[in-house]
Design a protein around this nucleic acid. Structure first.
Length: 522
RNA sequence: GGCGACGUAGCUCAGUUGGUCAGAGCAUGCGGCUCAUAUCCGCAGAGUCCGGGGUUCAAGUCCCUGCGUCGCUACCA
């Protein structure tokens, strides 16, 4: 709600870790951010959407070794997969950042140095249980019978010196910041989770790794023998991509920054990141939008179960907008949702084909049949007498949509639109245009009804743009309301009732969403 | 172990601050229309809102407890 005051809005996805290929979860986050940013455009904002890849760290080195290549080449190859999938998802990002970009590396070092000079980073030794097979430290609770879960060997206690970031110093400040900015972490359940986590004393964060055990990272500017911890590197992407510190983009867009993340990485984003910014003397981002996980066929996606879903395959099977619609409609933002063939087919057939597609088809078809495609227009007297106006219904659909979408309640926003669609279907049934058409005397009433329906469709067409842009544009074209260059209608523009011009020739429609044959019954 | 989430009609789930909250969609059955993608409209249902206890004039809605499912526990969206 408060977001409205920012007329420049910056949204980001996480930068995706290149140790795996893009899957359904990545696609969801990216599409959610894309939907949200397109909605911001409807609110009249200038927008910037950022995504990218996180490429440093031990896991990448290992993955590269497994494929007998270098980390550089490996990271580049997988990064490209993430970059290449964006057009297929119709995600319109303004920039794609890689943490191996020289410009990014510079910014990370700059910030590390700043915090170091301000004495919020200190050198200290750390003692822990280290597994040489895994090349990592284990917490005691992670071990099984005191042994490494992967190697079955007993980790050795080793002492290592590292640099630590004084997060504890900012704990009270952060708690206060979260409490005084109610939209800082949304939805609320995740805000509570962070706050409850902050009830315990924060430990200082170990932000270095000695090069003796990891070289694939950004070298500390104040000690060449170390690289920085991946999160410290990764989080900085959000500002390095905007050209921090002097970039014009940074100056304009950073105050309106919201990050989209899945629930597993709320700690780095909700705790480390604001504290890093605070310590570096940088303005805190505006907020964090946290979403849940997609389960597939009832269980968590995992390689061992073999249900890791490739978004491209789903899109091939059902279509891009069908996929985007399903993701936004089926998941309550913040909660987990389930992905099955059955659920996506059901959404496509009932919501898209039967409700929206068929409505579009029947209205344009009647206009074609009764008026040879030429828009007749409204007779104000008849419209008033018979209460035929759909303007108020449209208005409330717009209101409901806006209210929900502005807090990322995508499913609720779509519900508001579909309620309106349902009302139009009832409206047709109630007014039975096919009966009126039998008598020439009813021609004005018939025209009024069809005009209201077409205006209703115009509103629907423009509202669904952020979710299913391709279809929206297709519908705009068919309704002859498409505009050159600017595809987005702002909410204010949409609200103006009566925009379709009389005498316009509207063609007979094709099928927007083919029904999917479920193969059963009859 | 600790922290957290969830458990509401056959299925998938909505239910702000406790008081028309017992709901929606899908599926099912019956009826209606014919403009439309065998689509649309109407009607019909059923649920001890996981169990138990408590607070209150009043609780899916708050508190406690039990059971069940799941997540996180610090480099997987």
């Amino acid at each position: 709600m408060k977001d409205i005051k920012f007329n420049k809005q910056f949204f980001s996805t996480p930068i995706y870790y290149v140790n795996a290929k893009p899957h359904l979860g990545h696609a969801y986050t990216s599409i959610a951010a894309d939907v949200a940013i397109r909605f911001k455009q409807m609110e009249g904002c200038e927008t910037f959407l950022l995504t990218g890849t996180d490429e440093h760290g031990d896991k990448i080195v290992q993955a590269a070794e497994n494929q007998k290549t270098t980390p550089e080449k490996y990271a580049k190859r997988v990064s490209k997969l993430f970059q290449d999938i964006l057009p297929s998802l119709n995600v319109e990002n303004n920039y794609f950042i890689r943490t191996t970009d020289p410009a990014h590396i510079k910014v990370v070092q700059k910030i590390l140095l700043k915090i170091y000079n301000d004495e919020d980073i200190y050198f200290s030794s750390y003692e822990g249980l280290y597994c040489f097979g895994c090349e990592r430290f284990y917490q005691e609770r992670e071990l099984q019978d005191g042994k490494c879960p992967d190697h079955g060997t007993t980790p050795e206690i080793i002492k290592e010196s590292n640099y630590f970031f004084k997060m504890s110093k900012y704990q009270e400040w952060l708690i206060n910041h979260i409490k005084t900015n109610p939209n800082f972490i949304r939805p609320e359940q995740y805000k509570n989770e962070i706050l409850s986590f902050l009830k315990e004393p924060l430990e200082d964060l170990c932000i270095s790794r000695p090069k003796t055990r990891l070289t694939w990272g950004i070298t500390l500017p104040f000690d060449e023998k170390f690289v920085t911890y991946v999160w410290f590197d990764a989080l900085v992407n959000y500002i390095s991509a905007l050209g921090y510190p002097d970039g014009e983009l940074f100056r304009q867009f950073w105050p309106g920054a919201r990050h989209f993340v899945a629930k597993d990485i709320i700690k780095p984003h909700g705790i480390y990141w604001p504290i890093m910014l605070k310590a570096a003397g940088i303005e805190i981002y505006q907020g964090l939008n946290v979403h849940g996980f997609w389960n597939v066929k009832g269980s968590k996606m995992s390689k061992s179960i073999g249900n890791v879903t490739n978004p491209l395959e789903v899109i091939d099977a059902y279509g891009l907008d069908q996929f985007r619609y399903f993701l936004m409609r089926e998941m309550v933002f913040g909660l987990d949702a389930n992905f099955t063939q059955k659920s996506i087919v059901s959404r496509i057939n009932s919501d898209l084909a039967n409700d929206l597609g068929n409505l579009f088809s029947r209205v344009l078809s009647m206009n074609h049949k009764y008026f040879q495609g030429k828009v007749k227009g409204t007779d104000p007297r008849i419209e008033k007498e018979k209460s035929l106006s759909l303007a108020l219904e449209a208005e409330s659909a717009i209101d409901g949509f806006q209210k929900a979408m502005s807090i990322c309640a995508f499913s609720k926003g779509l519900e508001a639109v579909w309620q309106f669609i349902s009302k139009m279907n009832k409206y047709i049934d109630t007014n039975a245009p096919w009966t009126l058409a039998k008598d020439e005397a009813n021609i004005d009433e018939l025209g009024t009804i069809l005009y209201n329906l077409m205006e209703g469709l115009r509103v629907v067409t423009c509202l669904i743009y952020p979710i299913i842009p391709q279809t929206s544009l297709k519908m705009q074209k068919m309704l002859c309301i498409q505009r050159d260059g600017k595809q987005v209608y702002t909410l204010e523009e949409i609200r103006l009732w009566g925009q379709i011009k009389e005498e316009t020739i509207i063609a007979k429609p094709g099928i927007l969403f083919p029904r999917i044959d479920t193969g059963k019954k009859e």
